[in-house]
Amino acid sequence: QPEVYGTIAAAEFGRREWRRALEAAERGLAFDAEHVTCNNLRAMALVRLGRKSEAGATMDATLARDPHDSVSHANMGWTKLEQGERKEAMAHFREALRIDPGNGWARSGLVEAIKAGNPVYAIMLKYFLWMGKLSSRTMWMIVLGGYVAYRFLRQLAADPRWTPWVIPLIIAYVGFVLLSWLAAPLFDLALFLHPMGKHALDDDARTRAALVGGALGLALVAGGLSFVVSDSYQLVILALVSGVLSIPLSAIHVCAEGWPRRAMAGIAGALAAVGFSAWIGL
């Protein structure tokens, strides 16, 4: 039953175990070399393992056998996007959405391809794809390693000879982490305000863009007013609270629907309540 190996491959892919996903997909293909699910998962695992030309060849063959499969077109689009061929990627995503307008995998690919038209975002997209390829253990190592490096740099900053070098580094690191948390929703926001880009966002991305945009908009208005109004520390606090609140707000729609999303929405709501009551109190 190649379908069973396809399911195993999908599960391993979801666990970011690219090599195991590839093995399961290839075991399924040993029984049926034309199995669409196994071929798709084989290509997805190959892209994650950096074997892009093999992934492209797999998708070429799969599409040649069944040119009307939406998932195969979406997969071809992602493979092309990974190879930096944006125009071809967009053509495949559009074809995938024409066959199945509900294909979220193709829609998110089209969004990424539109974003990649922006040269600043092209660099960030490469960064996000690279981050997406790391196993969950490596991602935790980066977070913890960054924290350890931060502690070390703070100690170094205590020495006056090092201070002028260390402070900009710490600011750059904090800025890097903040941007890595907010880059995706900020560009969703840019798409949201774009007449064409709006249609490429799904409902989740639209809600997230509206939430993050609202929080950042309030922060900008309050921050801007604080320059005009004298003795305006309340406005500065309001700008800080609503600006920082955009971080947990942007995380809500990253969580799976159901209890994880409700939990994250609850956390963000509780933080908003604490932050705004602190502001009112002060």
């Binding site: 947990p248 995380a251 933080l271 932050g275 109190g281 002060l282």
Partner: peptide, 30 residues
Amino acid sequence: SAAETLSLAALILFFLGIFVSQFAANWLAT
């Protein structure tokens, strides 16, 4: 005043909470 101290504590709790929520989000994210 007591109200001011409480508000400051809430503000500190807010910023700590933001940090902790990132770990929660990492864990809850798909």
